[in-house]
């Protein structure tokens, strides 16, 4: 029965694992997706994964600091999304293009 505990009892490790998976997905998204919007969303995903980590740790340590941290991160993430979207929109207006591969003028 011991092996089943992994699935029956939800521990901090599970949360952490989840957050790492989310983070990894975010990283993969940034690395692989071609659409700028999706890449931005992936970044947001990474941030949220970290949020989850914070909360988990805060809970585990029985502290509030981590939770407060999350508020900061959420605010920043919101601002970031706003700025990012603004840039993407501006770009789209100018170039009619959101493919990330399009932007390779600067190199070398």
């Amino acid at each position: 029965m011991k092996g089943l505990e992994l699935f029956t009892t939800v521990t901090y490790a599970h949360f952490l694992f989840l957050s790492f998976v989310l983070f990894a997905l975010g990283v993969l998204g940034v690395l692989l997706r071609r659409n700028l919007i999706v890449v931005m969303m992936s970044v947001e995903l990474m941030l949220n994964a970290v949020n989850l980590t914070f909360i988990t740790f805060a809970k585990a340590l029985n502290q509030l600091d981590g939770q407060i941290f999350v508020f900061f991160v959420m605010t920043i993430a919101a601002a970031e999304a706003a700025v990012g979207l603004a840039i993407v929109v501006a770009i789209f207006k100018r170039f009619r293009e959101v493919n990330i591969r399009f932007f390779q003028f600067l190199k070398g």
Partner: peptide, 20 residues
């Protein structure tokens, strides 16, 4: 923007782990 946020996220994860 993309790379900066990306790095920030990594940084943040680091902070989280340190905190944890």
């Amino acid at each position: 923007f993309v790379l900066g946020s990306f790095a920030s996220a990594i940084f943040l994860l680091g902070v989280a782990l340190m905190y944890g």
